[in-house]
Design a protein around this nucleic acid. Structure first.
Length: 421
RNA sequence: GGUGAGAUGCCUGAGUGGUUGAAAGGGCCGGUCUCGAAAACCGGUAGCUGCGCAAGCGGCUCGUGGGUUCAAAUCCCACUCUCACCGCCA
């Protein structure tokens, strides 16, 4: 969330920012609630001060009667404050983060500038198959039985592909560790409160979040949630930063309202395994950290020899907590292009700088040498999302004889160099 | 899942209704002493927040949320977490 003081003092800027990010939060309403809330709070504080002063020493019977009255007034004022607070908080959490000055302003969520493309789409001497066809021929994924057991958009990986999942984890961990990231596995469930602080809305119609019935827990949509909550209510010394983490978790998404989007095979599923980078930095270093994570993402996919390009999210496509997001889009030969031909670029990783948007809600600060405190910056970046990485590996690695070539960097973890029947 | 004990400031730990936002010790910071250091001694040492240029004045915070009361760290209720033992289990 943003600082209400900042919103108050920069209302015009905030309104403009909401507009370019296609957010319809009612800032005027928010400011009105803020004003009413503060007035009521001031009143309550005055009444409390009055009562505290009298009650500090043993009051006379007359004073007790008087304070009873004051107590009733306090209770009444507190009661009238409640609805303001509730609506205020709900609105405040909806206000999106500020926007990095380099981000393209656009109202079209597909209008994301390509900022780097050094690879060309994979060329085939034959008609390539998509990963679903490949999986079927080579007996690598079972969608049918997954549907029987768990429903649509679930899958079993089997044979070499099940092994590949673990190879990807080890590969991602080894590369990130080399860059100073500390490896983690995390809980796959987290408290709703943490999700909300991280900018995920567990409620609402279009929520991506699975909630656990009769509990305050949700299935996490990404390890960003558990790694961001990790340092809740903590205070760092500036020299302790950055904290660089690489975390393995399962990710769960309802995919409510995503019917029109490309969803073949394992591209858009309810559950997948993801290895996620996360950083806590000082404000002055967050941009550098963001660049670093993008570099690592590129290194990972360079290593896998997957063609990719880098896009810079435009304002329409930016998630609320982020001021800037870069995606790696891998070439997927089996994904139909808009013009009807086969093969297209598709999102495979994503890295965001969320500045102090999450740390403010989670109360995560650092103190510098002069004793000054400030909120840390928090950033996340996909190392590898397995369900999508396997698509790219299968579709780009397929050979004319029907086999699939395994990227060399994975072979020491898989123990095999190709998948062949 | 059951039973019992517990949760207080940076740490240990006292505190069962009224100048207790909190004893004491430790740590840390400053000072005296010393060539310097240690020891000893003296002093200081919570966070968040509202108003204010400031000095300062207020509010909130003793696991969390409610309740009782003029007044709650202290009494009551619920929950969470920690520890021990039992049960179950990978």
């Amino acid at each position: 969330m943003l600082d209400i003081k900042f919103i108050r003092e920069n209302a015009e800027l905030i309104r403009e920012n909401c507009k370019i990010r296609l957010s319809d939060v009612d800032i005027d309403r928010l400011l009105l609630l803020d004003k009413s809330k503060r007035e009521l709070e001031a009143k309550i504080e005055d009444l409390r001060a009055q009562r505290n002063k009298v009650s500090k020493n043993k009051p006379t019977p007359e004073e007790i009667v008087e304070m009873k009255q004051v107590g009733a007034e306090i209770a009444e004022a507190e009661k009238s404050l409640l609805p303001f607070e509730e609506e205020f908080t709900a609105l405040l959490f909806q206000v999106p983060n500020l926007t990095h000055k380099s981000v393209k302003v656009s109202d079209d969520e597909d209008d994301n500038p390509v900022v780097e493309q050094k690879y060309k789409p994979t060329k085939f001497e034959f008609k390539p198959l998509d990963h679903v066809q490949l999986a079927e021929k080579l007996d690598l994924i079972d969608f049918e039985r997954a549907a029987k057991v768990s429903g649509a958009k679930f899958y079993y990986l089997k044979n070499e592909l099940a092994v590949l999942e673990f190879a990807l984890i080890q590969y991602a961990l080894s590369v990130a560790t080399k860059h100073g990231f500390t490896p983690f596995t995390t809980p796959d469930l987290a408290k709703r409160e943490i999700l909300a602080c991280m900018g995920f809305n567990p409620r609402g119609e279009a929520t991506q979040i699975y909630n656990i019935e009769n509990s305050d827990l949700s299935l996490i949509a990404t390890a960003e949630i558990t790694m961001g909550g990790y340092h809740k209510d903590e205070l760092f010394k500036a020299v302790e930063l950055p904290k660089k983490y690489i975390a393995v978790s399962h990710c769960f998404r309802t995919e409510a309202g995503s019917y029109s989007k490309f969803s073949k095979g394992t591209f858009r599923v309810h559950q997948f395994t993801k290895i996620e980078m996360f950083q806590y930095t000082t404000p002055e270093n967050s941009e550098k950290a963001h660049d670093e994570m993008l570099v690592i993402e590129k290194e990972l996919f360079d290593g896998l020899k997957i063609p990719y390009r880098v896009i810079d999210h435009c304002t329409a496509d930016l998630g609320a907590p982020s001021i800037r997001t870069f995606d790696l889009e891998a070439w997927m030969p089996g994904k139909p292009n808009k013009d009807g031909s086969m093969g297209d670029w598709a999102e495979i990783t994503s890295t965001s700088n969320c500045t102090d948007y999450q740390s403010r809600a989670l109360n995560i600060k650092f103190v510098d040498d002069s004793g000054k405190k400030d909120f840390v910056h928090m950033l996340n970046g996909t190392a590898i999302a397995n369900s999508r990485a396997i698509i790219a590996i299968m579709e780009n690695g397929q050979q004319s004889d029907g086999s699939i070539q395994i990227p060399e960097v994975l072979q020491k973890y898989t123990g095999f160099s190709e998948i062949r029947r």
